[in-house]
Amino acid sequence: MTARILIIEDEALVAMEMRFVLEDLGHEVVGTAADAKSALDLVKENDVDLALVDIHLSDGPTGVDLGRELATHMGVTVLYMTANPGMVRDGVEGTLGVLSKPTDEHSMQTAVDYALRRREGRTIEYAPPGLQLFG
């Protein structure tokens, strides 16, 4: 299953590594954004299935509100990827869950696959290890 994915990450090397992994898996990365405004612009310009959202971006800790906006108003499946999972421990309306960073390629692959299957409405018995689901 191929998806159009947006990476929202302010650390260029981390974003580049994520892009390589996702493209190796056959997904299309529509872009990377380091701040909320750039991310919103990319979503408005592209059809995005999944956004991988860091919490602390170049414009501050804007990722939580950005993820909520993307999920509830723009129809994007949102998966947080952050070194600060405690900031979303109570969940964020409309979003799927959080994967702690640093993470490895396999964990990212299984979390993305899970998120895309959920987006399609498929029933999944278990979340992959390392992915904390909301709600």
Score class of each variant (00 low, 15 high):
M1D: 08
T2W: 02
A3T: 07
I5Y: 02
L6Q: 05
L6M: 04
I7S: 01
I7T: 05
I8R: 03
I8S: 01
D10E: 09
D10I: 10
E11M: 13
E11F: 14
L13M: 14
L13V: 12
V14E: 05
V14I: 15
A15R: 00
E17Q: 15
M18C: 08
M18Y: 15
R19S: 12
R19N: 08
F20I: 14
F20N: 13
V21E: 07
V21D: 11
V21M: 13
L22M: 09
L22W: 06
L22F: 06
L22K: 08
E23Q: 12
E23I: 06
E23F: 07
E23G: 08
D24I: 07
D24Q: 12
L25T: 00
G26R: 02
G26S: 00
H27K: 05
H27W: 01
E28F: 03
T32N: 12
A34F: 08
A36K: 14
A36W: 02
K37W: 10
S38N: 12
S38R: 13
A39Q: 07
D41M: 12
L42Y: 08
K44S: 14
N46I: 10
D47L: 13
D47Y: 05
V48E: 09
V48W: 06
D49N: 13
D49G: 07
D49V: 07
L50I: 10
L50D: 01
A51C: 09
V53N: 03
D54H: 01
D54G: 15
I55E: 00
H56A: 11
H56N: 15
L57A: 09
S58N: 14
G63L: 04
G63Q: 05
D65T: 11
L66H: 04
L66P: 01
L66N: 02
R68L: 05
R68N: 07
R68Y: 04
E69V: 11
A71P: 04
A71M: 02
T72W: 00
H73N: 11
M74K: 11
M74C: 00
M74S: 08
G75Q: 05
V76A: 06
V76M: 06
V76I: 08
T77C: 07
T77S: 11
Y80W: 01
M81Y: 02
A83S: 14
N84W: 11
N84M: 11
P85N: 02
G86M: 00
G86K: 06
M87D: 10
M87L: 13
M87Q: 10
G91F: 05
V92L: 08
E93W: 01
G94M: 07
G94N: 02
G94L: 07
G94P: 01
T95F: 04
L96W: 04
G97T: 01
S100R: 12
T103V: 08
T103D: 03
T103A: 06
E105C: 09
H106V: 13
H106R: 11
H106W: 05
S107K: 12
S107C: 04
S107D: 10
M108K: 01
Q109F: 07
A111D: 01
D113T: 09
L116C: 08
R117T: 01
R119M: 12
E120N: 12
E120A: 15
G121M: 09
R122N: 12
T123M: 13
E125L: 13
A127S: 14
A127C: 10
P128C: 10
L131C: 04
L131I: 06
L131H: 02
Q132D: 01
F134I: 10
F134H: 09
